[in-house]
């Protein structure tokens, strides 16, 4: 079953087309890797799905509803947006406690005060930072902050999780924790996950399927094993082998 499908998507920045997708589908319960050189349009794709960026045209079928992305307002897109979690490469921490940061999404959804506390603590436990609940979020290290950002996006249990190069600036220890959490929630909640990554080893470790984006187009798409072994097109071969200059 498809959880997400994009059609006829065109994104322009200052008149230049930077992403064009005719059609792409994501099945529920899978982990997808989005790979490709810098500036290919990977992050843009994720931001469009999360309704952070409005494309020039395009439609999206998500969670059983159809939306015209080019005409969607913030208020109208809210029910869709609230079913997704998003973690950026450099997360912005609110100037409040770790607890308050993680509770933010639940408060936005008008959850009961009493219900918020155990859920926040559970999310913090998931990322192994329950002891930091009272700490100020702006005093966390980079790795801890990124784990809090993950907990913040997971706490309201979204069926779709979007990760934009979340481990690009983390040390191996934090990367390991991060990947373990992703795998855990995938197994326990059957969450669909889209992860943009530069780290090909990570893509191989984590994902079921991969999209290779090059110069604003999806060039290759398929099972991760197939993509990395039989690499059909030249660009992908060059990219995987490191011959492509990014």
């Amino acid at each position: 079953m498809n959880i997400l499908e994009l059609r006829d998507l065109v994104v322009r920045h200052e008149g230049k087309t930077i992403l064009r997708v005719d059609s792409v589908r994501f099945e529920q319960g899978k982990i997808y890797g989005i790979i490709g050189p810098s500036g290919a349009g990977k992050s843009t794709l994720l931001r469009v799905i999360n309704l952070l960026e409005r494309p020039a045209q395009g439609s999206m079928h998500v969670f059983g509803t159809d939306v015209d992305l080019a005409a969607l307002t913030h208020a109208k897109g809210l029910p869709i947006q609230r079913q997704m979690g998003f973690v950026a490469q450099k997360p912005a921490m609110f100037h409040a406690s770790v607890f308050d940061n993680v509770a933010m999404g639940l408060r936005y959804r008008g959850e009961d005060r009493a219900a918020i506390r155990p859920r926040v603590l559970a999310a913090l436990k998931l990322v192994d930072l329950e002891h930091a609940a009272g700490q100020r979020a702006d005093t966390l290290s980079g790795g801890e902050a990124q784990r809090i950002a993950l907990a913040r996006a997971l706490v309201y249990e979204p069926p779709l999780l979007l990760l934009d190069e979340p481990t690009a600036s983390l040390d191996p220890h934090n990367i390991a924790i991060f990947e373990r959490v992703i795998q855990t929630i995938h197994q326990t909640r059957r969450t669909t996950i889209l992860i943009v990554t530069h780290n090909l080893a990570q893509a191989r470790r984590l994902t079921h399927a991969c999209l290779f984006i090059h110069q604003g187009r999806i060039v290759e798409c398929g099972e991760t094993a197939a993509v990395f072994s039989g690499a059909a097109c030249r660009e992908l071969q060059d990219f995987i082998s490191g011959r492509m200059i990014c």
């Binding site: 952070l52 947006q81 998003f86 933010m104």
Partner: peptide, 18 residues
């Protein structure tokens, strides 16, 4: 903070407040 708040599900008014 705008995108962080938005992606966490803030409504327009909640976004302003945040």
């Amino acid at each position: 903070y705008r995108e962080t708040a938005k992606s966490l599900g803030a409504s327009p008014i909640q976004l302003i407040a945040t």
